[in-house]
């Protein structure tokens, strides 16, 4: 039996008059990887930006409906707190250019003004970098700028930065779309590894990636949730015609 950590109820999202998500109902299970799959412009990114309330920062953006984190309505909580509970990694690696690797990892604490002792900081940095698989590569250079790393390493640094806040959910917005195949496979292995400690929602348009890393897949098309189910089942016997067409490359 799966444990529901996040429940999306009848969610509609708008940019101005344009409706980008239509009546979405979705459940995300704890310590599982759920892929949000679909072609460009289907509202995948908007969906996860609603989950950590980044959506509302765009001018003219608004939502209707409910998102419950362990039964608690996210839109009744202060957005800053929501974003500490739900971490996010973006398409393009975006470490803070003015900060060292060390500071980048604890950036969430620095930016929130949370005071930590030297030992606590060291511990968080080491743990987060180990979790993101970057520790061995950077432990000698912790006080160099994060922008000196390669693209794949920068992206893992961003994952470490998100993990350092000990989030309950990690949102990954096409985290490998700007990376080469080798760096991509490292990150995919990492996503599978992270399942033990964190619930992951992965946005991708890459069917192969969804198949390799995710337990559940939600297929979106033109702002609507077409199909949701176990990845293995959906990829072998899709229930919807649309899903099938996308999986065999007819649409997308």
């Amino acid at each position: 039996m799966e444990n529901i950590i996040l429940k999306i109820i009848n969610l509609n999202a708008y940019y101005g008059n344009q409706k980008v998500l239509k009546n979405v109902d979705l459940e995300i299970y704890e310590n599982r990887v759920t892929t949000i799959l679909g072609p460009s412009g289907c509202g995948k990114t908007t969906l996860i930006r609603c989950i950590n309330r980044l959506h509302e920062l765009s001018p003219g953006a608004r939502i209707e409906g409910q998102i419950l984190l362990k039964g608690e309505d996210l839109y009744q909580i202060e957005p800053m707190i929501v974003r500490q509970k739900i971490g996010m990694v973006f398409q393009k690696p975006n470490p803070f250019p003015t900060m060292t690797i060390y500071d980048n990892v604890i950036a969430g604490y620095i930016l929130s003004g949370i005071k930590l002792s030297k030992e606590e900081k060291d511990k968080i940095v080491e743990e987060s970098l180990i979790k993101s698989g970057l520790w061995d590569e950077v432990k000698e250079n912790l006080f160099k700028k994060g922008t000196f790393l390669s693209g794949g390493q920068q992206q893992r640094l961003c994952i470490a930065r998100a993990l350092a806040m000990k989030p309950e959910i990690l949102l990954l917005d096409e985290p490998t779309s700007a990376l080469d195949p080798v760096a991509t496979s490292v990150i995919e292995e990492l996503i599978i590894e992270l399942k033990k400690s964190v619930t992951t929602v992965l946005v991708t348009h890459n069917i192969g990636q969804a198949g390799r890393v995710s337990d559940y897949t939600a297929f979106f098309y033109l702002g609507e949730l077409v199909e949701f189910g176990k990845t293995t089942e959906m990829f072998t016997v899709p229930k919807s015609k649309k899903t099938e067409e996308y999986l065999i490359g007819k649409i997308g």
Binding site: M80, R83, T98, L111, C158
Partner: peptide, 27 residues
């Protein structure tokens, strides 16, 4: 200053005034 840097700071739950002070001004 790229928007994605600012969004990264927002996504960490940072309050606006700290984003200005710690991210925008240093950049």
């Amino acid at each position: 200053v790229p928007v994605d840097i600012k969004e990264a700071a927002y996504a960490l739950g940072a309050p606006y005034h700290r984003i200005v002070l710690k991210i925008l001004l240093p950049s």
